[in-house]
Amino acid sequence: MDWTALILSLRLAGWTVIILLPVSVMMGRFLAYHRFRGKGLVEALVMLPLVLPPTVFGFYLLVAFGRNSPVGELWQSLFGHQLVFSFQGLVVASIIFNLPFAILPAQRGFQAIPVEVREAASCCGMSPLRSLWKVELPLAWPGVVTAMVLTFAHTLGEFGIVLMVGGSIPGETKTIAIAIYDRVQAFDDRAAATMSAVLVAIAVSTIGITFWLSSRVGRRLG
């Protein structure tokens, strides 16, 4: 059992969730409420990581964040090390490929709020921020939490992109999914089995929570 890899994976998933939570709320809310030209395109772009092979996605991120890219150079000059093959690089990649999981369920949660209820909140004198806090989040939270649970679980299991962008540096980029692969390559089936079982347990509880929350979306609106 590679505890370092598990803890690294949990850290990665934790940071991804923390950074994506406001993105999930803001983007999900925006896409739920507004109709504009090019909305279909924006939604398609958000969906892209769902359909693109992770290795392909990872390859492009590697090119975009690499030593010779503008982003890579800027990172190097700011922090003194390169973005790819680092924990920060993994977090950035993780944020991007989790966008569909973070945004779509939240969007569904906000969409379930009748427009008159939001208008009533404004007419009650609530500023947009207060309306979000007092009315919209209390009604849309199952969608937002579902988004975060999915993001967390998905990050733990991601393999292709992590390998492409992060490599397999112990304690830096070697996540539990990579560690399992690593153990299997070394014919250490016992360790691979233990770690796989841990991921199975996490996945099962994730699905349980998600289904339970999904059944609550819209129920309070009834």
Binding site: P114, E116, V117, E119, A120, A121, S122, C123, C124, G125, M126, S127, P128, R130, S131, K134, V135, P138, L139, R220, L221, G222
Partner: peptide, 28 residues
């Protein structure tokens, strides 16, 4: 909208479903 002192009763009421009657009233 939220800076206009306006009271409005919507056709389908648009009450806040997660609040009690008293909380709905206090929300305004």
């Amino acid at each position: 909208v939220h800076r206009r002192r306006v009271g409005i009763v919507f056709q389908n009421y648009a009450l806040f479903p997660h609040m009690t009657a008293a909380q709905n009233v206090m929300a305004a």
